[in-house]
């Protein structure tokens, strides 16, 4: 958290989270994990469908 947002937090103002030196995960974390979840659910449903008569 930057000095500015820390001061805002102390004064009770609305705080905006500021990440110093954002990493790849800060930018794309939720997209990566939601993507993995959708991929696995999709694979599972596809396999269930593919083996429905087997």
């Amino acid at each position: 958290m930057s000095a500015e947002s820390a001061a805002q937090a102390q004064s009770g103002m609305i705080t905006i989270e500021v990440v110093d030196n954002p990493s790849f995960w800060d930018y794309a974390g939720e997209y990566v994990y939601v993507g993995i979840i959708v991929l696995f659910v999709g694979l599972f449903l596809w396999r269930r469908w593919a083996m429905r008569k087997k």
Partner: peptide, 17 residues
């Protein structure tokens, strides 16, 4: 928070599938 749920859920679903 989603930051806790999503990675755990991704790992969990991955292992289950």
């Amino acid at each position: 928070p989603w930051k806790v749920i999503l990675p755990s859920l991704a790992l969990l679903l991955g292992l289950m599938v």
